[in-house]
């Protein structure tokens, strides 16, 4: 039995400790906002926060997430997260939308740690998140808009 604390709620799960957190979230707990894109930490679609840091849930075994605070896109509610979601909405960033949970989770992590990121800092922080619809110019603009709103 492994107990995961997801968005503030404890979930005792009867799963193999090697199961990646991504699949525990999606298949066992039923939180499908976190997406599968590559399974090898290359695309960022599966990004969640573990004790406040962005991680790739597809390569994180549940055993490593036990005892830590897991936050998924369904559970974000801080002022930074709200600013990010508002900016994403106002700029109509999304196209297919499949990468966007991961994009927003990375953006929230960036803004949590750097209130006014420079253009280069944004590009570097977001380089691990692929968007095949190539919404990158809008993601950049939305991160800046969120930073401005929070200033």
């Amino acid at each position: 039995m492994i107990t995961l604390t997801i968005n503030g709620t404890a979930h005792p799960l009867d799963i193999d400790p090697a199961t990646p957190l991504l699949w525990a979230l999606r298949d066992t707990v039923g939180l499908t906002g976190t997406k599968f894109g590559c399974g090898i930490a290359q695309c960022g679609a599966c990004t969640v926060h573990l004790d406040g840091n962005a991680i790739r849930s597809c390569i994180t075994p549940v055993s490593a997430a036990q005892g830590k605070a897991i936050t998924t896109i369904e559970g974000v509610n801080t002022p930074v997260a709200q600013a990010v979601q508002i900016a994403w909405t106002q700029l109509d960033v999304v196209q297919c939308g499949y990468c966007q949970s991961g994009q927003m989770m990375s953006a929230i992590d960036l803004l949590n740690k750097n209130k006014q990121p420079s253009d280069d800092q944004i590009d570097t922080a977001m380089a691990g998140n692929i968007c095949r619809c190539n919404t990158y110019v809008r993601i950049r603009a939305a991160i800046k808009a969120a930073a401005r709103a929070l200033a």
């Binding site: 999304v94 939308g97 949970s101």
Partner: peptide, 12 residues
């Protein structure tokens, strides 16, 4: 505004 934006921004 796009009709699919709210669902996609809020993981719905």
């Amino acid at each position: 505004p796009r009709k699919d934006t709210p669902d996609k921004v809020h993981a719905k």
